[in-house]
Nucleic acid binder design. Structure first.
Lengths: 390, 390
DNA sequence: ATTGAATCATCAAGTAAGTTGAGTTAATGC
DNA sequence: GCATTAACTCAACTTACTTGATGATTCAAT
């Protein structure tokens, strides 16, 4: 799956599409905004913005929301997103289950569902995904023609890599483009990403990163992944496998270990299992933590050092606005981890005048991956892309 | 220096500029190419490409280079870059000296110079930079109106960060935008980056990364920096300080240390000094290495482990096409380091069917920083940017 | 050698979309 | 009330890409 992003030429049609998405993104970021303000910020004439706004209005993507009085002059009409102007389907494929969700334009989940995944071959998975799509659209009770697309999240890494064969990745797509495959199967525009990237997008669309363009999301799945958002676009690497932070070597208690062997859900579960306690869900972890289970506390204490090291790496290599922790880990444990990290003083991120905390907990909770899948579509609807063709 | 990259709207004028740069970039990447091929690859009509080509021809940026016979049909006229169609000035500001160079459109250096830097305050540095620009243009004997801009390289990190005060960064610009300042002082478009980023750009413009869009450059300066190129654009982070890899913790000989305390020119020099040998230049290191100086050999042996760890981190976090080593370190030592690294098997970069080596040595040698400064300008001339405003 | 298919290239007319400038509407403040 | 300010609209204009017809040049088949 070689990702190439040929830069494409601009013509009138693509210019319009670019400008539409840019205007839509400004409306999203501002919450409410007037035409003249968009024009000032975008380098377009007010007339051009006016035309685009009237387009967006008639497509139902935005709505008029009164006038704002801002001193002298005619008060500008304010526009805001119309949540029910479009919907996104998000589908998360896990080894044993398929999750699906429908989000509205604002990123709010309208419905979710979970289905056991029996067949694990290509045909079986495809069938299950198509069925999940139909079911979730019916459950959310939205008109099918307002579905902007489907986002699909599945475990990476994609393609054949040195990490292949560890069981974490989804190997049915080795030599196939998953996005082309599902675009065909679902009859919708499809975006495919791994869980960490989708989670990052979710936080930007409707979470703690809504105003941020450059941040990192440290994702607790079975292992540990990193989603990197840089200037509003995902950093996916040359082959779509950037963010495999679980495999970087970090110091932990005098030894050098792969990060995810020290910090991940599997790692806690292994500690608990060694202590004779079987916990196989996030809820179970939450309960054990609430009970101050000593094994969990010990694990948390041991996790502080490698996690601090990992955050030092992220901050110094990316200079993000913030690092978000989230995924399949109870909020309480994430909060504990955040509190226990010794934020490195020697970091480019330790700058005066910060307006965002260096560490945040993600807002999308346990469904992060699935909601992120939908968010991929929403985000795409707001991302101008004359420059890059997916 | 908060970097924001507002996405700007497209209009006819900006579309043309975008398309011009896109065409120019395709000509650069292909070496020689015909109009129809550009049209097919870019989504523009042949007519549009034709118009742009004739523009570029009359601006002298490209030249006609015969016809290529490719089977049936009229053989397409081939176009290639005209090296003397434009020039870039590169200026590198170091604590004790200013280096300058002029590059042609193909990235070939036409002249270089070095000047001792006495004054280290803002006024003094500015004066020296302006003088260096005048001098290098005179030395290269190029028409001033063909100078596309100036690239300036200076040590990061920029702005106030947790790394400030270590002496490595250039503190005269704390609350000032260096690029705005120098644009004004030089009367030319100016691009400012740190050395590692500039080095990465240099390799893309005229080095081992000329066909690559996504790669990492591990830069040996006084410390150690990382330049990240992702889809043809630098990953600079939220505040321009991405790539501070020298400060990440890595395992080295049983201890966890900041990477650049194990791997950097200062680190070798310190080892040599401890052994009673003062070496303060890259040439001196080359001589010592050629003589198989035991201290250097010992240092190299010790460097293999932390360097391998660093490369594991880079590969797994970025999934680059390749990692390039370069900067102020003799080629022979870089080659030795490359040969001594144990490339991690457990890495997304260890994939079958690679066409590029996982590790490469940079091609620009010791002037990398200065040439990179010029390359920033060349690269900018080839980078379509409707989407992002610097 | 001739003819036809394929490809590159140009011309001229057509079109989409942004810009410009004049004029209208609706607030604020003296 | 009247000048000022800012948002907004209309209509004419401009830019740059697209389309379709035509011609040029080469290869290949007859």
């Amino acid at each position: 799956m070689a990702l190439s992003t040929p830069i494409v030429g601009a013509n009138a049609e693509r210019s319009r599409s670019h400008n539409r998405q840019m205007v839509l993104d400004r409306v999203r970021q501002a919450g409410q905004i007037g035409r003249a303000e968009i024009a000032r910020g975008s380098g377009l004439s007010t007339q051009a913005v006016s035309n685009i706004i009237s387009d967006l209005l008639s497509d139902g993507l935005i709505s008029e929301q009164g006038r704002k009085s801002t001193g002298r002059g005619q008060p500008p009409v304010q526009y805001g997103l119309n949540p029910c102007g479009g919907y996104a389907v998000g589908i998360e494929i896990r080894p044993d289950a398929i999750f699906a969700a429908v989000l509205d334009l604002c990123g709010t989940p309208l419905a979710t569902l979970r289905r056991v995944l029996k067949a694990r071959d290509l045909a079986g998975v495809t069938k299950a995904v198509v069925a999940a799509k139909e079911a979730i659209i019916a459950k959310a009770d939205i008109p099918e023609n307002k579905v902007l697309g489907a986002g699909i999240v599945m475990p990476g890494p994609f393609g054949r890599t040195g990490l292949s064969g560890t069981g974490s990745e989804f190997s049915i797509f080795h030599d196939l483009s998953p996005s082309a495959w599902f675009t065909d199967a679902l009859g919708l525009p499809v975006a495919v990403e791994n869980d960490a990237n989708a989670a990052a997008v979710a936080e930007r669309v409707a979470g703690v990163a809504s105003g941020l363009d450059t941040f990192a999301f440290l994702y607790f799945g079975n292992g540990l992944g990193l989603g990197l958002m840089h200037r509003g676009r995902l950093v996916t690497g040359a082959f779509g496998n950037a963010g495999e932070i679980g495999h970087i070597p970090v110091a932990s208690n005098g030894k050098t270990v792969p990060l995810e062997s020290a910090i991940s859900r599997l790692s806690v579960q292994k500690h608990l299992a060694d202590a004779g306690l079987t916990v196989d869900s996030s809820d179970g972890l939450a309960v054990a933590y609430a009970a101050q289970n000593p094994t969990i506390i010990a694990w948390l204490n041991g996790a502080a050092e490698p996690l601090s090291n990992a955050i030092t790496v992220i901050e110094n290599m990316f200079d993000p606005d913030t690092v978000i922790l989230g995924g399949a880990m109870p909020d309480a444990i994430l909060d504990h981890l955040i509190a226990s990290v010794t934020l490195p003083v020697r970091s480019v991120s330790n700058r005066p005048g910060r307006t965002t905390a260096r560490l945040l907990r993600g807002a999308s909770g346990r469904m992060t991956g699935t909601l992120g899948a939908g968010a991929l579509v929403i985000n795409r609807a707001f991302t101008p892309r004359i420059a890059a063709v997916a």
